[in-house]
Design a binder for these strands. Structure first.
Lengths: 340, 340
DNA sequence: AAAAGTTGTGAAAACGATTTCACAAAGAGT
DNA sequence: ACTCTTTGTGAAATCGTTTTCACAACTTTT
């Protein structure tokens, strides 16, 4: 077999198959109006030459890149990595490629990433949450690139959303702890600046408590990044300042795991002296001791459903624009009725 | 401001800036030979029109796509997600985009993904491990796409490698346990088929034991996928069949965490009755109780260094072709001297 | 048996940038 | 003052596909 220097182009295939480039193109794109004999010659020629189409040329002419972009805060957190895994798997079934960018929770950086994605010609963009620079959305809309919010259920005027209601999830946590008889609460939230999800969970939690007569002022809320150490530190502040809560809701399993670790070190019993509820239901929720009661976020499903939306035809999309997924409470060992 | 319908093209910018397309192109690409006044007009015009270059056209003509591909087993495992996070962060500093694909540890699927990447025109590909279909490497070489192995330190004739020596890492684990006085061993390896890394760790472990007079036949090895449950099941087999080991080396922290969970459930003391060593030093290594002794894999660094290689000029690359990173043993609480 | 479709194919234009080449104007060297 | 560079610019070719249009060769309808 020859060593192909550069690489074979469509016209080389045409030459070898003794037909025109147009016909080769038709064969490659599954156009049915090609004689079987010719089609066979083309396929054979393409294989023999190890022909691989030039995606740039194809994209340029056809204005279809089969490229999708995703901008997520970080891949270092399983909740996002898993979503992307589901997204990618589904897209790749349809030969659509995924370009991924991380913004580190910074919406200005997100804008830059979006710009680059637009330049690359992505046909859709997957975003996390609903807090974005107006310029980002304006750019996408101007270029007719559709986008999907994830981890949130409220779509805006344009764009779609697949996720869940963070406020409702926060309320669920509060309701559960109230039902266990707790009345002294605390919360370790994620950083809420520019983060509608972290803010939504906090607000839902506080709102539900308020409905039961527990004023916001009496519920200490501390914020931490999604890291074990921050969970530890935040829990320490909660336990050392003011009245000790008997129930703490954490905006993430990581924070909750850190909180549990702090309790271990400080000799505070979980759930004996304090109940702890996490968020996400990551694999680590089974590794803490006690195992973590938490709210399950369907990360993989979100990715898959976002992919389905992206792959759907414009007419199908109407039905898919807003998908709210259920959040389940997973009760394990880190919560108990309040001790009297 | 006008609502631009489709979107402005380079020629529109040229028209508005009252110059030729060639000049606009020069400005956009930082060509220094452009009069300052003209450059300014062009920049202003581009901004006014919200001009974003068409990457496909640019790539087609210039043969530079600024696209890199990565094919990893899964994003659902932090050890890969973190590597990709590092890789992406570094690449994006230089406006290079990353297309990511998951193969699910299947080298045939990997080939398909690679083909798609080639079609997209990626300039480099990041691969995990050194076990690949010959056809995959042949295709990349034929298209002059360079590739980087990660999680392994042995580069082949062509391509580069940034990672560590899995065999040596396995030996390190063995040495450490031998030094604690253990003489009854077991191993929970990852699935070794088509996986040079899992196989390397196992072989290193067994080789080192053999050097100390402990024959391979006396060391039970069970394999499991990187899931908690598999760790549990594997540990059960190890503890119930034949002679009980007093020291078990696991090919991954996940497996080790599962093993510890099994011991808890079965009432086996760790490290009292059995010492357990993990691999990866994921965040979860701090969450098990007892905390896990493990070997630290520099996942993020691997991603970063792979990016550096890819971004380097051909001349610089010669120095970077083979980078072996150190693996550190992190001693925590899951290991202890053998009990007599 | 003529008109009206099908089917299969090729020639050539088009996609939107970059690059090559040519050339004018201005500056430098003698 | 006259060549020799240097600097700045535009016209046109080009990258490798897809798409449009035209058309020939058959079928089917009337």
């Amino acid at each position: 077999m020859d060593i192909e220097d550069g690489s074979a182009k469509l016209i080389d295939v045409a030459r070898l198959a003794n037909c025109s480039p147009a016909t080769v193109s038709r064969v490659l794109n599954g156009n049915p109006n090609v004689n079987e004999v010719v089609r066979d010659r083309v396929v054979r020629a393409a294989r023999e030459l190890g022909y691989v189409p030039n995606g740039s040329a194809r994209a340029l002419r056809s204005t279809r890149t089969r490229l999708v972009g995703a901008i997520i805060p970080t891949l270092d957190h399983a909740i996002y990595a898993t979503m992307v895994d589901g997204l990618q798997a589904r897209l790749s079934e349809k030969d659509v490629s995924l370009i991924i960018n991380t913004s580190g929770y910074d919406i200005n950086l997100e804008y830059e990433q979006a710009r680059l994605l637009v330049e690359r010609g992505v046909e859709s963009v997957v975003l996390v949450g609903s807090t974005h620079l107006p310029a980002t959305l304006a750019m996408l809309e101007q270029k007719r690139i559709d986008y999907v919010y994830t981890y949130t259920s409220k779509a805006m005027e344009s764009g779609a959303a697949v996720g869940f209601d963070n406020e409702k999830a926060g309320r669920t946590a509060a309701r559960y702890l109230l039902d266990l008889g707790h009345f002294q609460f605390g919360m370790i939230a994620g950083i809420t600046q520019d983060n509608d999800r972290a803010a939504g969970r906090r607000d839902g939690f506080l709102n539900e408590l308020e409905r039961s007569g527990i004023g916001r002022a009496t519920v200490p809320v501390v914020e931490g990044a999604y890291r074990l150490d921050d969970g530890r530190r935040c829990m320490q502040r909660l336990m050392e300042e003011g009245t000790r809560p008997t129930a703490v809701f954490c905006g993430s399993d990581i924070l909750a795991a850190g909180a549990i670790k702090y309790c271990h070190a400080a000799g505070i019993e979980v759930p004996g002296q304090v109940s702890i509820v996490g968020f996400d239901n990551l694999e680590i929720a089974e590794l803490t001791s006690p195992e973590l009661t938490t709210l399950e976020v369907p990360a993989r499903d979100m990715g898959r459903i976002a992919a389905d939306y992206i792959l759907a035809s414009p007419s199908q999309r109407l039905h898919l624009r807003q998908r709210e997924l259920a959040i389940r409470l997973i009760v394990r060992e880190s919560t108990a009725p309040v001790r009297r």
